[in-house]
Amino acid sequence: MTITPAHPAKSDQWTDARLLYALEEVVEREINRHLKVAKDWMPHEYVPWSEGRNFDGIMGGEAWDQAQSKVTEIGRIALVVNLLTEDNLPSYHHEIATLFGRDGAWGTWVHRWTAEEGRHGIVMRDYLLTTRAVDPVKLEQFRMAHMSEGFESDNAHSMLHSVAYVAFQELATRISHRNTGHQSGDPMCDRMLARIATDENLHMVFYRNLLKAAFEIAPDATMSAVRDVVVQFRMPGHGMPGFERAAAQMAIGGIYNLRIHHDDVLQPVLRYLRVLEIDGLGPEGLKAQEELGLFMGGLDAEATKLDEKLEARRARIAARKAAAG
């Protein structure tokens, strides 16, 4: 695939301001497309309110106990991580509003995206508390700790880096929600997370299409940004309390691990944009493209090693159960 920049310029000439202006029409077009396919939904319709009852404390209700919930252990761990990630929406809004601006098509999208994302935290918390799936005290303590830290992008506040990051991150979030729902043990939870995942997929498509347009006008700079984001990628929840342990449990449980990250998140976006096939790049873009290809190959090999370790672990557990039974 040959891409010729619409406005030939060296990558260092593509300031954030120039890129924002050059992509404004694309953003407007993508907003119109998004509004035609996105469906409004009501968070309260996905919560089994009849299961709710008072907790202990000032209401004098029943104290929380893990046995009260039908959600699986891995489902509970993933739900807390996913909700705490959604809780940091004010920080995410600040990040993209600062980079993209609050005016014109960019501002319209920033506010629309924030409004849609706001539903996710609302419905997840209502579900978790109503069904007693998590300890409400610990959940609030985690929320306070996580939000007090805020969120700061790893991507040096570059507009292109941010667009590239969210193109992958929205898909990663969608996959995490869907896998959590599948393994939650509760059909109502699965349905709720499927609804959230639909939103995340539409958001991914918006940013992916924007990234495609960026490749067309500034291929070298965009390739460098994609390379940086893929190599340095971290989920936005990495700063929450106990994230490393929870992430390890989610990896073992098949919610989100290196194989899923490679096969279901990075590869689909890179393949759709044909990133490793783009030609006509300058020295900077070619270097970034080559490094990206090498990294993906190494990541695939690393994921295979992890797959083998997880399979060996499952075999050991099965053998112990067979011996005990």
Rank of each mutant, 00 (worst) to 15 (best):
M1W: 00
P5Y: 14
P5R: 12
P8F: 13
S11K: 05
D12A: 08
D12K: 04
T15I: 00
T15S: 08
T15G: 03
D16E: 03
D16H: 06
D16T: 00
R18E: 13
L19H: 01
L19C: 05
V26T: 15
H34G: 03
K36P: 00
V37Y: 06
K39P: 05
W41F: 13
H44W: 09
P48V: 12
F55W: 13
G57A: 05
G60F: 01
A63H: 00
Q66K: 04
Q66G: 14
E73A: 15
E73G: 10
G75N: 01
I77A: 01
T85S: 11
D87M: 14
Y92P: 05
H94Q: 08
A97M: 01
A97V: 00
T98G: 10
F100R: 12
G104V: 02
A105L: 07
W109T: 01
E116N: 02
V123L: 02
R125S: 07
L129H: 05
T131L: 07
R143H: 07
H146T: 10
H146G: 02
H146W: 15
M147R: 10
E152F: 10
D154M: 04
M159K: 04
A167H: 12
A167Q: 11
E170C: 11
L171S: 02
A172P: 13
R174E: 10
I175K: 04
N179F: 12
G181R: 03
H182L: 12
Q183S: 11
S184P: 02
D186K: 02
M188N: 07
L193G: 07
L193Y: 10
R195Q: 15
A197Q: 13
T198Y: 09
E200D: 14
H203R: 07
H203C: 10
M204G: 11
F206W: 13
R208C: 12
R208V: 11
N209Y: 06
A214I: 01
A214G: 03
F215H: 08
F215M: 08
E216K: 01
E216G: 05
E216A: 12
I217Y: 02
I217C: 08
D220I: 12
D220L: 04
Q232Y: 03
Q232K: 11
F233G: 08
H238R: 11
G239N: 05
G239A: 02
M240A: 10
E244I: 07
Q249T: 14
N257G: 15
R259H: 07
I260C: 15
V265P: 13
V265D: 09
Q267F: 01
P268V: 07
R271H: 09
R271Y: 04
R271W: 02
L273K: 09
L273P: 01
L273N: 09
R274F: 04
L276P: 01
P283R: 03
G285P: 06
K287S: 10
K287R: 10
E291T: 09
F295R: 00
M296V: 05
G298A: 00
D300I: 00
A303W: 01
T304Q: 15
D307N: 09
E308Q: 14
A312N: 01
A315Y: 03
A319W: 00
A322M: 06
G325K: 06
